[in-house]
Amino acid sequence: MKNPPEALDRLLQAAARAPQGPPPPVPPALVARCVSAWRSAGELEETLLLIRWLRRSMAGAGALVLLSAAWYFGTPRPAANAEFYFEDSAVQIAFSQP
């Protein structure tokens, strides 16, 4: 048996020399298929952009609602029966005047 490294080189050289027939023709439909995939990907991308924009708009609107609610409930307001005290104090002021 010959030295395997030599054998490997001879094998690779012979494989490299091996005639290769003409490459099989490129299927004409392949161009259309690739372009169609490109078009679909573009449409999908536009849809994804729209979805992303809608999602951000929803998030923005949600944040606005939360801020409004926080402001509404966080601001101190007079109690429900404060009107009685105002009127009472007005009566007392009126009577206390000479």
């Binding site: 054998a7 012979a14 091996a18």
Partner: peptide, 20 residues
């Protein structure tokens, strides 16, 4: 390959390609 140290014959090159 096992028997000789000579180059592989042209008629065996396709076989060599398949083997590789």
């Amino acid at each position: 390959l096992a028997a000789t140290a000579e180059e592989i014959r042209p008629d065996q090159e396709l076989g060599a390609r398949e083997l590789v």
